[in-house]
Each structure stands twice: as C-alpha cells, then as structure tokens.
Amino acid sequence: MSGQKINHILHQKQNIPICFSEAILQKVHKIIAHYPEGKQKSALLPILHIAQEELGGYLNVDVMDYIADLLKIQPIEVYEVATFYSQYYLDKVGKYVIEVCRTGPCAICGGEDIQEYLEGKLHIKDGETTADGLFTLKTVECLGACGFAPVMQINTEFYEHLTPAKIDIILEDLRLNATNDKHSDKTWAEKYS
C-alpha cells in the first residue's frame, strides 16, 4: 500500500521552490526547540500539520522534500510518515474536508445515515471532492467523541449530535464563509503562541 502511495507521490515532483513565511519559520524553529538537540526529527508530525495547512492544503512531494531539508533528515523519512498517518493528505483536497465517523458507537446512533445524507447532498462518494473544490467527503475511524454521536469533523472542528437538518445549516454556513474566506478555527501554527 505504502509502496504504491510513494510511487504515486514521487511522480508529482515539480521542483517548485517552496518556503514558509518568516513568521511561520519562527514558529517552526520554536517547535524544533521543544526536543533535545539532534532530535529535531521529533518535530516532524507537528511541522507536517503546519506545512499542509500553510503550503497548499496537502503534502505534495515538493513540500515534503522542503520539510526534509528543513529538519536535516532524508526525504524518505518524511514520505514514510506522511503515508502512515491518516490526517496527512497526499492529494489535493477541498477547502473543507468533512470527516464523518463510521465506527461502532456512531454507527449505532445513525452515523451511516449521516454519511449517506452527505453523499446525496454533495453528490459525491467517500473520498471524493465536489466539482467546485469546496468539499471533500471522507469516512474516518473513531474521533473520540462517542457520547455526542453521530459526529463529524470539518477541518478538525467537531460537529456533534448530527441530523440532516443540522447538516443543511452547517454546509450553508460554510458556503457563506468560503466566499468571505473566514476561518472559523485557529490554524495549527496559531495554536503555538
């Protein structure tokens, strides 16, 4: 699985020069300092979150090579991590990534109906992105919010006790926000202040 994934990402290499902004770089170096000297690789997971958010919404191979360079590690060390964890996207995703929990406790409280409703409403299947590039729909495993089932996350913000009516309102709000370009939640980098 990972072998295929890596082949897929390597073919996308475009050799575009990539760099964090000065402000983000400062944050990144602050995070690297959380770990002992010589153990800067520890900062890889948090920095990949920031990279994904700040450098185009997904981790293409140019972004990953830049991070490898920044952390003074081999590119393969970044690829193997990026392909292991489910929150890193290797392909372009929509502005809003809707992740619907499909695991047991949500499923017995109607999670599967919610997924179906979203597929119908957005006219896309699990893993696909709407034509306008606004929404990507993804089923995910347990989000650790079982008491509020059924739940979903949109760009890591939780939405709980879902019903079709609630989903209509949430999606409408996001469509409005998209044109205002307003972020409802803080970015990964902003969480480190």
Binding site: L44, L45, V81, F84, Q87, W188
Partner: peptide
C-alpha cells in the same frame, strides 16, 4: 506533541516512535 491520526499510537512504544517523528 500532536499525533496525526493513528489508533496504534495509543500503544506506549508506538507512541514513543511517533514522538520521535517516525511511523
């Protein structure tokens, strides 16, 4: 230290690997 979506990282040695920046 934030993880990035992997149930297995709740196992303590997998968690340490993840904290070191590995799978």
């Amino acid at each position: 230290h934030p993880g990035a979506g992997a149930y297995i990282c709740g196992e303590e040695t997998a968690l340490l690997e993840s904290l070191e920046g590995n799978r």
